[in-house]
């Protein structure tokens, strides 16, 4: 990803300097370059985060246990909701399986046909691209010949370069593609014509069969449900820690210590991962802990 970002950055710079790399000139190539630009920006955002110093796992005191039990009680309330979400996901996954069975070979046949046409189009665009690359220096010289007033041209190029840069910053793929198309047009290249040549030679990509459309929709729904479930769990963790009056990290460690104690009790073994004081404390509160035990398995 880092390399992609660097490449895309270089790409934009090269455009500003009148020399567009062949691979990113038209059609799918432009989209691919734009996609990389978008992904690169997503990564950059993550890296901008600020560090947080965590707390290490201290033995659980009575006050901490009281807080922990409050948090766990809250978790119990949300546990039912996440269980329901899991059931819904299972049901949706069954729908996916049924749809896959019903579709038979149709999706893979479409993928094969689409790949073949795609490869043919890609090869055709490569050829056009190679021709443009050869013609590029001449076009640039023509446009920037000495004695010509290049002010308007330079302004136009700067404006396009700015649009590309802004689109890249926003992660706006469509905007990036559009700006790149403007640049090609400025140099006198007809991107649409290249596509028409490719379609004439290869035909159009086949339409996606309804069975595949349905399958993709169902898979996307499963994906969304899974992420919702994960988000619900994360949210529940944060709310529970807040209710416990502890930083999230401390809550998680205290929870783990209680889990280890609970596991040892279930196995009728001496709890070993915690201190003797914690063992005594947890034992005296065994009835309270029992109420939240389903979370500690």
């Amino acid at each position: 990803m880092r390399a992609s970002l660097r490449n895309t950055g270089t790409l934009a710079l090269l455009f500003a300097l009148y020399a567009a790399p062949a691979q990113a000139q038209i059609g799918g190539f432009i989209k691919r370059a734009a996609q990389k630009a978008v992904e690169g920006k997503v990564q950059e955002k993550v890296e901008d985060a600020t560090p947080v110093k965590p707390l290490s796992g201290d033995p659980v005191t009575e006050a901490a246990l009281n807080g922990l039990l409050k948090g766990l009680s809250l978790e119990l309330e949300t546990q039912e909701r996440t269980k329901q979400m899991a059931t819904a996901i299972d049901a949706k996954e069954k729908e996916v399986n049924d749809a896959e069975n019903a579709a038979g070979n149709e999706p893979s046949a479409w993928e094969d046909a689409n790949r073949n046409v795609g490869n043919c189009i890609s090869n055709s665009l490569d050829k056009s691209s190679a021709i443009h690359e050869k013609e590029m220096p001449g076009r640039v010289l023509q446009l920037t010949a000495p004695g010509k007033d290049n002010t308007a041209l330079m302004n136009k190029i700067q404006s396009i370069s700015k649009k590309m840069s802004e689109a890249q910053t926003k992660g706006d793929m469509d905007g990036y593609v559009k700006a790149m198309g403007e640049y090609m047009k400025l140099l006198g290249f007809d991107v649409q014509k290249d596509s028409l040549v490719a379609f004439a030679a290869c035909g159009r990509p086949p339409a996606k069969p309804a069975s595949l459309v349905k399958l993709e929709r169902l898979k996307a729904e499963v994906d969304t449900l899974n992420e919702r479930r994960r988000a619900a769990e994360t949210e529940s963790e944060a709310r529970s820690a807040k209710a416990a009056g502890m930083p999230a990290d401390q809550y998680a460690l205290a929870r783990e210590r209680l889990w280890a104690w609970s596991d040892a009790r279930r196995q009728k073994k001496t709890p070993r991962a915690i201190t003797k004081e914690e063992d005594v404390l947890f034992s005296t509160r065994a009835a309270d802990i029992k109420r939240v035990e389903s979370l500690l398995r």
Binding site: V46, E47, A49, T50, P51, V52, P54, E237, A248, D249, A252, L253, R255, E256
Partner: peptide, 17 residues
């Protein structure tokens, strides 16, 4: 170690010094 703990430690790790 729970994911939550390490998550806060490392997902945002940056060495400012």
């Amino acid at each position: 170690m729970p994911a939550l703990l390490l998550g806060r430690l490392t997902l945002i790790a940056a060495c400012l010094g």
